[in-house]
Design a protein around this nucleic acid. Structure first.
Length: 1040
RNA sequence: GGGCGGUUAGCUCAGUCGGCCAGAGCGCCUGCUUUACACGCAGGAGGCCACAGGUUCAAGUCCUGUACCGCCCACCA
């Protein structure tokens, strides 16, 4: 059997065979050897899925859309690269591994050594990375698998260190304080999304803070101010009382001092807009509860921290990491016995004690009930504590000196963002129109985020990730002896002094980091350009890059000093002062490595051929939730590190929700596993359905149902996928039918003149479809081309063309030309469908290649040969087939067929009854119908059909009126039914006619509407009048 | 609190620059072993286009407001 398709379409077999073929020939591999000039590159870098879990349906959508673009461009002849890989997803992965270890072994992270724990995470990563890549391959993703990267592999790690170094050198990385979400029970830092808000019935306590000197306002003597708080225990760390500058009392009170109860600390009253003015009538709950005085505790509240920053307030941390009151972490004035009594108390215990103290001292003015949301740890379920800690930051609005030449200086209009800052580098391309969002509205999210950007905290208190390439040193206290353990803050200060020492010698300032395992080997990162010359001698930059991988437990890197002279002396001096070195315990924010992904995957910072060929890329395809966290940072770092934006188009696609509009999630149990769908419906069916649901505005709602698998398990599925499965099944069967009729086709047997109107019509429809699909894909539209192709293939090709071609296949005269048209249309259709349903189209294409090696319409068009559809040429040059006449002719023919079918159905004429039919129509239409009588007979199940200008209606015929045609189906006897039917049609027509008449009788319509619209209305009226007359005439015949 | 999107047939969604009697798929009803396909073929029923105003000769489409649903960001003294 020479290459016929199997009777039943089995996705699994087709998918396996296609993947085998594609992988054997490495069709997905992008070569760098080609010439950029002659063969343009087209690049998409995958949003690397997290290695936390297998891919879900959202990933399936995301990657389907990317694959459609890639396959489309590959067929258009671009040198396409789709760069694949996965993301280590720091906190998320560490968390799932911690959960697994706890569940399976009852062990916590802290029960392991760091290296040991990281090895467990690594094992998890290996497992899920393999799983994810398997899933992507099963979906048909045509990634360049040879280039698969992981955000923590050696290549990416090198880029991370290079970027960090570069930022460091430019003075963009600094050490700063930040309030983190601290879980005092487990004593870990939580990410924002690990904080769960719970409604808590709490209190507002109104506490009096005595003024150092009483103040008189409008004759009233004030001895104290009253602050309202839900957290009295933090008052120990208060360093100011704030009030709104618009408060009428402010001019009397701002600048005055109060004495903090218990502690005795004297703190100022300051003015800050943040404070809500009191208003008992207000709708704003805060205003109702406010006294107008806000206690400011910079170390224990994020807002207060901001206020503290604005006013340069002291920061007093009064808690230990376990949440107890302590004077060991920054509280220096706890000498008062009342304060001493609180030390060691738990924060809630202290709260009660403090309230009680105020009560005793008659300083508690009021207590009111208050319901509010309080952040709790998702792990321990205790309230989280905003806790002050040291973090590394990237300065995003700091001007970068050496970017001045390239980007200019000053700020971007209407913002405080310097053009040569990181934020500016990301913002400018959008404003210049070089960076485009599709749909456009998402540009605003991006823009406003960047305009209001704050410095980026990049350190995370985790073990899984790129360990921060910074080594801190402790200073020597005596000759050759390491200092005893010093508190981190202290050695920071210590270090700073030494640094300044060094800076002085180097004629610069602001050094920060050094590494020094042995006395004669070390390196320094500079944060100033001025020191470049000297430092370049000190450090071999490349050595730094080749130093330890992030967090992989290698030794601290060492370097031999390649210099002498002043710099040497300076460096040497530092070494002598340093006792020990500690690799920073923290890792980098996951987004740091993600930000580099578009070029780290191509080997940056080395000047690789890949970068030259494929960077900058073309499109980023992602969901909207990470526009800020990821997209903006990629642009930022792309500009900063690789010198250009990483892509010019950002396509933001829909999110998939369940039938109730909820996000699909594990906890809700409403997720759908792509592999389950691939198993039940096939990968192509899944892709087709997902793409068909992708419109520009709507999120995708996917009703979820339970499905029983053959092995008895129950899985989630959705009836939506039947859409794709039905289509694939139809495609398979129609192709099978076509191929059965294409055995032994002679390419030279085609004669242009033997083309029928149906041939010209289907070629015309093909040409229009190809043009539309191409244009829509250019515009990142997915549901439209699917609709277009669906209509063309199912309605035009299958329902009409294939039915019409059947008799021609029995006719040796007509067969050769018909076959060639059929082969050509099938060939082109497969090409157009391939990006959406790659497996099945490839499978059919391979058979087509066997059965009809050359598809061409001699003298008209030729389908370019290809050994595989994946690399076949995208349809082009079909415009010559557009044929308005043929389309009109077929349209009239179809109308006639539908009218006859309708009558047959209404009169219950059995399909087997090959009846007679005739039609009366204006001359031209009548001729046309007559010429196509065979086509009408074939699809309307008739023995004979004829049309003429003066056809007479047989007495027992049913009548249908279509436009200017009157169609009679003979030998239908039910006069009553006929009358009812015609009456109904009459009513409908009258209604339509009246509507148009009303419009035309309206003078202002005729006067003001576009002439074209008026003319259309007149035509329509004429048509309807004619139709109505015909119906009435038929009715009167019936009555008579 | 700020921003964005949505509300059209029982369900999931299209609907261009405002202009034919508002469309598709699924589901539903009727008929069909038509030699590619019942995951199919033919036909049919089904709509106060969320609500209230406004602009216009004309509004599903533009403007204003309301309600509900969803998402993102910020915040929670």
């Amino acid at each position: 059997m020479s290459g016929q398709l199997s009777k039943v379409y089995e996705p699994k077999i087709t998918e396996e065979q296609a993947n085998e073929l594609w992988f054997a020939h490495k069709y997905f591999h992008a070569e760098v050897s080609g010439n950029c000039e002659t063969r343009k590159a087209y690049t998409i870098v995958i949003p690397p899925p997290n290695v936390t879990a297998p891919l879900h349906l959202g990933h399936a959508l995301n990657n389907t859309l990317q694959d459609i673009l890639i396959r489309f461009r590959r067929m258009q002849g671009y040198n396409t690269l789709w760069m694949p890989g996965t993301d280590h997803a720091g906190i998320a992965t560490q968390t799932v591994v911690e959960k697994r270890l706890l569940a399976e072994r009852g062990k916590r992270r802290t029960d392991f050594e760091r290296e040991e724990f990281v090895a467990h995470v690594q094992a998890w990563k290996d497992e899920y990375e393999a799983c994810i890549i398997g899933q992507l391959k099963a979906m048909g993703c045509s990634c360049d698998w040879e280039r698969t990267r992981f955000t923590m592999d050696q290549v990416c790690a090198k880029a991370v260190r290079a970027a960090f170094f570069k930022l460091f050198k430019d003075g963009l990385i600094y050490r700063g304080k930040r309030l983190v979400n601290w879980d005092p029970a487990t004593q870990t830092v939580l990410a924002d999304d690990e904080v769960e808000y719970e409604t808590v019935q709490g209190h507002f306590w109104y506490m009096r803070y005595p003024l150092v000197e009483p103040v008189e306002i409008q004759g009233e003597r004030f001895e104290h101010v009253t602050v309202a708080t839900t957290r009295p225990e933090t008052m120990l760390g208060d360093t100011a009382v704030a009030m709104n500058p618009n408060d009428p009392r402010a001019k009397h009170l701002v600048g005055k001092m109060v004495r903090l109860p218990i502690v005795g600390r004297v703190i100022p009253i300051i003015a800050d807009e943040h404070v809500v003015l009191p208003d008992p009538e207000s709708e704003d709950e805060k205003a109702r509860y406010s006294t107008g005085f806000l206690k400011v505790t910079p170390a224990h509240d994020p807002d207060d921290w901001e206020i503290g920053q604005r006013h340069g307030l002291d920061i007093v941390n009064v808690m230990a990491p376990n949440g107890s009151i302590s004077d060991k972490y920054g509280w220096g004035d706890a000498a008062d016995p009342d304060a001493q009594a609180l030390l060691g108390m738990d924060r809630f215990e202290a709260r009660e004690a403090i309230v009680e103290w105020f009560r005793q001292e008659n300083l508690l003015e009021d207590v009111r009930e208050y319901t509010h949301e309080v952040g709790h740890s998702y792990r321990s379920h205790v309230p989280i504590e905003p806790y002050l800690s040291d973090q590394w930051y990237i300065a995003v609005k700091k001007p970068i000196e050496h970017f001045k030449d390239k980007s200019g200086e000053g700020t971007i209009e209407g913002t405080d963002v310097p053009v040569n800052s990181l934020a500016g580098l990301a913002l400018k391309p959008l404003l210049d129109g070089r960076l485009r969002f599709i749909p456009e509205r998402y540009a605003r999210t991006y823009q406003s985020w960047l305009e209001n950007l704050r410095d980026w905290p990049i350190s995370r208190q985790l073990w899984w990730g790129h360990r921060i390439p910074v080594w801190r040193c402790t200073a020597r206290t005596g000759r050759g002896h390491p200092s005893k353990t010093i508190h981190p803050d202290q050695y920071q200060i210590e270090l700073q002094i030494r640094m300044d020492d060094f800076s002085e010698q180097m004629g610069t300032s602001g050094y920060h980091v050094l590494v020094h395992p042995k006395r004669d080997k070390f390196f320094i990162c500079s944060s100033s350009n001025d020191a470049d010359e000297a430092l370049n001698k000190v450090i071999d930059y490349r050595d730094f890059l080749n130093s330890s991988g992030a967090g992989d437990g290698q030794e601290i890197p060492t370097f031999t000093l390649p210099f002498s002279g002043k710099a040497f002396t300076a460096a040497r001096k530092i070494c002598n002062m340093v006792a020990t070195f500690e690799h920073d315990e923290d890792v980098l924010d996951t987004w740091f490595s993600s930000a580099l992904w578009p070029f780290s995957t191509m080997g940056w910072p080395d000047n690789t051929p890949e970068l030259k060929m494929f960077y900058p890329g073309d499109v980023l395809c992602t969901a909207r939730e990470i526009i800020t966290l990821w997209v903006s940072r990629m642009v930022m770092m792309g500009q900063y590190c690789a010198g250009d934006i990483p892509f010019s188009d950002v396509f933001i696609h829909a999110m998939i929700q369940d039938g109730e509009g909820r996000k699909m999630s594990k906890s809700l149990g409403n997720g759908i596993d792509p592999l389950v769908i691939i198993g039940s419906h096939g990968a192509d069916a899944m892709r087709f359905t997902l793409a068909s649901m992708t419109t520009q505005t709507q999120d995708v709602r996917m009703p979820v149902q339970k499905m029983k698998l053959p092995d008895g398990r129950t899985e989630n599925t959705s009836p939506k996928f039947d859409f794709g499965r039905n289509f694939c099944n139809k495609l398979w069967n129609a192709s099978r039918f076509a191929l059965m009729n294409l055995e032994g086709v002679e390419p030279d047997g085609f004669e242009k003149d033997k083309m029928t109107v149906t041939d010209r019509w289907i070629l015309s429809r093909l040409a229009r479809t190809a043009a539309a699909v191409t244009e829509q894909l250019d515009e990142f539209k997915y549901s439209e081309p699917i609709t277009e192709l669906y209509r063309f293939f199912w309605n035009d090709f299958c329902d009409w063309y294939l039915e019409w071609i059947k008799p021609r296949m029995q006719d040796e005269q007509q067969k050769p030309s018909a076959q060639n048209v059929l082969a050509f249309v099938l060939d082109q259709t497969l090409r157009l469908l391939h990006p959406f349903v790659p497996f099945i189209t490839e499978g059919i294409f391979q058979k087509l290649n066997e059965v009809v090696p050359a598809r061409k319409l001699q003298g008209l068009a030729e389908a370019a040969d290809a050994e595989a559809l994946v690399i076949a040429q995208w349809p082009r040059g079909l415009d010559c087939f557009v044929d308005g006449e043929a389309e009109k002719e077929i349209s009239i023919t179809q109308d006639a067929v539908r009218a006859i079918r309708d009558l047959r159905s209404r009169y219950n004429i059995a399909p087997a009854v090959m009846g007679l039919s005739s039609a009366k129509a204006p001359l031209e239409t009548a001729r046309l119908l007559d010429a196509n009588a065979d086509l009408i007979c074939r699809l309307a199940g008739l023995r004979r059909f004829s049309a003429s200008v003066d056809a007479k209606k047989p007495g027992n015929a049913a009548t249908a009126v279509v436009n200017d045609i009157e169609i009679y189906v003979h030998d239908v006897v039910d006069a009553d039914a006929e009358r009812r039917r015609l009456e109904k049609q009459k009513q409908e027509t009258e209604k339509a006619k009246q509507a148009v008449e009303a419009k035309l009788n309206n003078d202002s319509f005729v006067a003001k509407a576009k002439p074209q619209v008026v003319a259309q209305a007149r035509e329509k009226l004429a048509r309807l009048s004619e139709k109505l007359k015909t119906i009435e005439r038929n009715l009167s015949h019936l009555k008579g």
